[in-house]
């Protein structure tokens, strides 16, 4: 008993020292994060309570909840929420399906497999602003776009994509950009699966489809979850294709674009700040709910 006490004491001392070391190591990152994102967010909340339009600099004053009332009553918010959630959900689901398809196809051994994978990841690497412009003008354009050349060659009518089908246009471009992201994560999942187990299953007479449903899919679950989580976070903040291709027309005015419009075209700081606060709250809610529902659907399908 007596002999162990000093040892315990010195362990305690080392532990205490370690605690301080740990804290001081994380402090710079934490401080930077707080100064650059948390404090500004608090200031955004403060701004949202102000009556502040850059066009009327003399009239700054406390407005309390006036901005929030107008956010909820002018009728821009609900369509914008629908646009944001709709675009995010569609793009996540489509990217997940295409990503899974590519991951399964590229998990096989064939000549040029590495080249095929390299080509498939490219849309994720390309600058999103460039992707939106290229799709808008060289794919979707009514006179010089490839897609219309194909459809009119087949005798189908030409479509003015970004004006007639703005929502589909944005979702197609986002799906194209995010499919490689899902594919990369799912491919990593497929490749971490033990080959022997799969082979054993096929020796036991399990068909490819059953093996996939009962063994591969459950194994992939955590990879699917994480890709959906990260993909949703990135897609909820989507701005580029909306700003470049549709300018928020035709049900594509996402929250990010709405805020941009209010603040930097309308110059109404107070109201834009209120939209900012609402956006943060909604993002948290949507991310939580959407993810939970998605997983439930997925689990129900898998556990039939």
């Amino acid at each position: 008993m007596t002999t162990t006490t000093p040892a315990v004491a010195s362990i305690g001392k080392v532990a205490k020292k370690n605690v301080w070391l740990s804290r001081s190591l994380i402090l710079p990152a934490l401080t930077f994060g707080i100064v650059m994102t948390q404090i500004p967010f608090l200031v955004t909340i403060y701004f949202s309570l102000l009556n502040w339009n850059l066009l009327k600099p003399g009239e700054i004053g406390f407005a309390w909840f006036k901005n929030y009332i107008s956010v909820f009553t002018t009728g821009d918010l609900v369509p914008s929420i629908i646009a944001t959630v709709g675009i995010t959900a569609s793009a996540v689901i489509l990217s997940l399906l295409f990503g899974l398809l590519f991951a399964i196809l590229l998990d096989r051994n064939f000549r040029g497999q590495a080249l095929a994978r390299t080509l498939v990841i490219t849309p994720f690497l390309i600058m999103p602003a460039a992707a939106s412009l290229i799709w808008k003008y060289s794919m979707f354009d009514t006179s010089i776009g490839i897609i219309n050349w194909v459809t009119t060659s087949l005798g189908l009518p030409s479509i003015a994509w970004s004006t007639d089908l703005p929502l589909a246009t944005v979702i197609i471009v986002l799906t194209w950009q995010f499919t490689p992201f899902f594919m990369l994560i799912l491919l990593a999942g497929l490749q971490s699966q033990s080959r022997e187990v799969i082979e054993a299953a096929s020796v036991d007479g399990a068909g490819a489809l059953r093996t996939f449903q009962w063994m591969t899919l459950p194994h992939l679950r955590q990879y699917i979850e994480i890709s959906v989580l990260l993909g949703s976070i990135m897609l909820l903040q989507v701005f580029d294709p909306v700003a470049i291709m549709t300018k928020g027309t035709g049900g594509t005015k996402t929250l990010a674009y709405l805020l941009y419009e209010r603040a930097f075209i309308g110059l109404d700081v107070g109201q834009a700040a209120a939209y900012g606060v609402v956006t943060v709250v909604l993002t948290l809610i949507v991310a939580t709910i959407a993810l939970k529902t998605l997983f439930k659907v997925f689990m129900a399908g898998g556990n039939r």
Binding site: G33, T37, F41, A263, L284
Partner: peptide
């Protein structure tokens, strides 16, 4: 905390920074 800040859209802090 760090992970949760990734959920926070740029919209949250862009106005004050501006």
């Amino acid at each position: 905390f760090f992970i949760s800040t990734r959920f926070m859209p740029a919209a949250a802090s862009i106005l004050p920074l501006y």
